[in-house]
Design a protein around this nucleic acid. Structure first.
Lengths: 240, 240
DNA sequence: ACGACACTTTGATCCTGGGCGAAGGATGTC
DNA sequence: GACATCCTTCGCCCAGGATCAAAGTGTCGT
């Protein structure tokens, strides 16, 4: 009988309860940028034991706030969808009175949509485009996680990325990382970081004035377009 | 150190905790349409004692989720702002998986914005317009709550509303009721209900197929326009 | 096959927070 | 002024849940 006159009378209290715990809130905000994190990382990030984290993650999973994918002995958690991210953002806005809905903020938001760093690799529209180019050129293959083709190995080498060295790193090699704003994947993991670093050195991208914002230079636009065009993925000619 | 890379790192857990309790959630959803409700009403609606309700309301007040205005021995609570309403709606959307983001729903949302009932009186764009017309014509005066002028008494009588009889009712006479979508007031209380009822009888408005949706008829559009035009608020001529 | 590792489950502890009844203000009515 | 009404504050009880240590399950290296 309560609140029947409201159009949408879903059970909001249980959902809110999932976010209400500081530990769970910390985990969720850590996942806010779309990365998938292992249970152990989330435990460390939230500052609790593995047991506690596991319990919390089980609850979030049951509540449909996160999804999980097992990979070897790791279990990677990520937000279940854009609505979840939206809830967290709106909630943060309410917590942060008085409303500072300035012009400057919305401008920053647009810049972040265009191109930003996600942890240590490129995200946003530019990140999604870059991955699409590499896939179109046959440098990478895969879906949830990518593998470098022999052509790709040469091409990426030409761009300044030593694929073999990257493969030796502890972290996941080349997982797909989901963009909330684009709802499409970009290149994450060790390879994503190395490639981003190399392309910054090469002047394709430049760190923006605002934290996490990245600018795409003219060289970057041309470079990505060239990868797209070039079905023969020997990128050497392009990058000198 | 947690979640520092996230653009907006406000304290979301405390805010969520306020909504997480079922009793508080019931109160908030009851307030979702913008009405101001007395503490006692909220207690009854949520099914708890007055003492319990008072404690919850104090918390919501402290958390900036609601505001309060004392009026005699009553204390009327309402949502603190549109952001709060937004949080509740987004939260409800997450709770109600799987996403039913149908075309029909957004169409319903638009209809509700246009004209709807709020409890038992007219709200939405049409409700705001009607109030503006009555104020412009000099039938009503006031801001937080309205009073009927002598001209207004005659004019409303012509529309079929017995102002003196309405004044006898137990509930508040003619308070301003805030529209979330419009962010402007419309006419609530006993007078708002009586007027809505009279105008429906007169064929200005018609109940829509969907719950709470109201349709504005041609007669209604003309009628409101006529009130606007007519600086002489003796509305008799208009309504026969 | 063995141990190391990543994570989950179980069991036990502790404490925050929701609940009510009774008492205390505040306000309007007679 | 006395009473009724509405709301808040106080004191108490109790349950849900957050936490961790220890044990259990599955996976990867060698």
């Amino acid at each position: 009988m309560v609140a029947e006159h409201v159009a949408v009378d879903a059970a909001i209290a249980p959902t809110a309860a999932l976010i209400a715990d500081p530990t769970r809130a910390a985990m969720l905000t850590a996942l806010l940028d779309g990365r998938a994190l292992a249970a152990g990382e989330l435990a460390a990030l939230a500052g609790v034991s593995a047991a506690t984290a596991s319990s919390h993650l089980a609850r979030l999973l049951g509540g449909g706030m996160v999804t999980v994918v097992s990979q070897g002995r790791h279990r990677y958690y990520r937000l279940a969808g854009p609505e979840v991210a939206e809830v967290l953002e709106v909630l943060a806005r309410v917590g942060a009175r008085p409303e500072t809905r300035s012009l400057r903020q919305s401008r920053q938001a647009r810049l972040l949509e265009e191109a930003r760093t996600c942890y240590d690799h490129l995200a946003g529209r530019a990140g999604v485009e870059l991955l699409r180019a590499l896939l179109a050129a046959g440098c990478l293959v895969g879906e949830e996680a990518f593998e470098v083709t022999s052509e790709g190995r040469a091409g990426l080498g030409g761009l300044g990325v030593d694929v073999d060295a990257v493969r030796g790193a502890r972290r996941r090699f080349a997982p797909a990382c989901l963009d909330w704003t684009e709802r499409r994947p970009h290149l994450g993991g060790a390879l994503g970081a190395a490639l981003t670093c190399a392309l910054m050195d090469r002047g394709w991208y430049r760190k923006g004035a605002v934290r996490r914002v990245v600018e795409v230079t003219e060289a970057g636009r041309e470079g990505v377009a060239a990868i797209f065009e070039c079905k023969d993925p020997t990128l050497h000619a392009l990058v000198t």
